[in-house]
Design a protein around this nucleic acid. Sequence first.
DNA 1: ATAGATGCAAAGGGTTTGCACTTGA
DNA 2: TCAAGTGCAAACCCTTTGCATCTAT
Lengths: 127, 127
Amino acid sequence: MPTGPTRKTKQRDAVRAVLGAAERPLSIDELLKAASRRADGLGVATVYRAVALLLDEGWIEAVEIPGEPARYERSDKGHHHHFQCEKCDRAFDIAGCLDNLRKLAPPKFRVKEHSVTLYGLCAACAA
Amino acid sequence: MPTGPTRKTKQRDAVRAVLGAAERPLSIDELLKAASRRADGLGVATVYRAVALLLDEGWIEAVEIPGEPARYERSDKGHHHHFQCEKCDRAFDIAGCLDNLRKLAPPKFRVKEHSVTLYGLCAACAA
DNA sequence: ATAGATGCAAAGGGTTTGCACTTGA
DNA sequence: TCAAGTGCAAACCCTTTGCATCTAT
């Protein structure tokens, strides 16, 4: 399947702009709502397609949180993990990582990646 | 909705038996396949219902792994985390936990739980 | 002009639910 | 007996895909 040239469109610009300005990982729904303000009539399918494109491109990464739909965020943030607020349902970045985590694996297991998610109340909801 | 008495059935016994004997978290599909041997003609819906029951009962817990369908395991295993094999797609328990993880959260966030998942190759697949 | 992109609506995959039939107590 | 439980199929939710239309180039 020859991947033809990629066009610049209002919809893609909108999605890219929203993700570029986001300070936390956004779900497809959050993206749709936010990007719709910049590109009227924006459809979900287009958001999914734009996200897939940005993933391929490597400009964003998926943030998979157990029991939650995926979120997406710019991939230039370096290694970090996430916090999921149980009340407002928003995801946040958290800095740092205990990388001796890999040592928890059983003897012959080969660890390639790891994911850490904290759950609780974010600053706004805990107040 | 009055929850009437719970009956003992071949299907539920099968699901309970499989989970009771499992040494790693099982997905609905794994449960269906394994329990079907003990209860012929077992349907998915019944497995889901049996699992929901055992969850309510507190006898099992859901193991949510990012990007994977949920797994279930007995809840008497104490605090631990999981390893997801990228090749055979099976989930495994891993002992231990770095509980200073909660300290990674930003100042005013209230951490209640956390989840750690390691990804890579299990002993069998790494061999 | 024309291939790429969009939006809608239909199709998928996993989970849940409604309902007539079966079965445990 | 008869409500609880089961299997099947339809319903759901989220994501993907097909297709006619629109649009960047």
